[in-house]
Write a protein that binds this DNA or RNA. Structure first.
Lengths: 154, 154
DNA sequence: AGCCATAAGCTAACGGCCGTAAGTCTAGGA
DNA sequence: TCCTAGACTTACGGCCGTTAGCTTATGGCT
């Protein structure tokens, strides 16, 4: 038997590339997953489809974390934790792909008022996006709870 | 006399590429500015230096707009206006490059308390980053003033 | 004024990585 | 046994960064 991997292996390999912030190219993915480049076409039509799959998987994880929280503060902190834990993945989700709409919907499930939900998410996103790129995380996490409670009571 | 352009032409060409969200490669810039590729080396050591110059120029413009505002609300709106007017440039500034520190400093000049300045900027950045990528701008601009005043009085 | 060193401007090419596809080989069911 | 579909190798064309080398203009010196 040969390998040629399965869809899941490919997504895992691509995710690893994202986390190391390498470019997600067919060749890089095939190297990472140790399968021939052209075998990828058996599972995906092209590179962008792989990236989309990575984002969908990552978003599902983020969604579970947020919905598993007991109150608004915990949900906000869970959101920020995800971004701090997987900074590159977070940036790809809202940079290359556009998962803003699903994220918004996510917070309307936590916080009924849509305007407040949007405001909260925008603030969280600003913080998450920046904590993803710099070494300011210390200062940022300190004021996260204040930011969240402030935004949730506009 | 020949062309070969000058530093300014190169930055302008690269900025145009960013705004059209094309990749800023030496060859793309040289095509855009109508100069030979290798002439770029007379002004820049490589592609990333060009992108940095683009970001610096854009940030100077953003800074002028924010500092020209009369009060905090106007400053916040000026910040958002810039992002809405030059969405790709904004994303490159805080994505590829990291202009978070300067932006933070900028708001400590508008708003004395550093913690409040940071909170305000994080909220603005979240909104700006998302208004840059989607057609939600309508809904977003409506709640911008509320967001700003709410954040500026944490 | 005439000449030459120097630097600017440019063409062309090298090697590398990319997406994609054509073609070969192999295993396993009809 | 033959046929089909998965797995794989190889190659094509394109864009990239970078550099070597040619041509042309410039400016100081005799």
């Amino acid at each position: 038997m040969t390998k040629a991997g399965c869809r899941q292996d490919i997504v895992a390999a691509a995710t690893a590339l994202v986390d190391r912030d390498c470019a997600v190219t067919l060749r890089a993915v095939s190297r990472e997953a140790d399968i021939p480049t052209s075998s990828i076409y058996l599972h995906f039509p092209g590179p962008s489809a792989i990236l989309l799959a990575v984002c969908r998987t990552a978003f599902a994880e983020l969604e579970a974390a947020v919905l598993g929280a007991s109150d608004v503060l915990a949900a906000g902190l869970a959101y920020l934790d995800f971004a701090a834990l997987h900074p590159r993945r977070y940036r790809v989700m809202f940079g290359a792909a556009d998962f803003a709409e699903p994220a918004l919907l996510l917070f309307t499930r936590v916080l009924a008022d849509p305007a407040v939900a949007m405001t909260l998410w925008l603030g969280l996103h600003g913080l998450a996006d920046q904590s993803a790129s710099t070494r300011r995380s210390q200062r940022l996490t300190e004021l996260a709870p204040r930011l969240i409670t402030s935004l949730a009571h506009v």
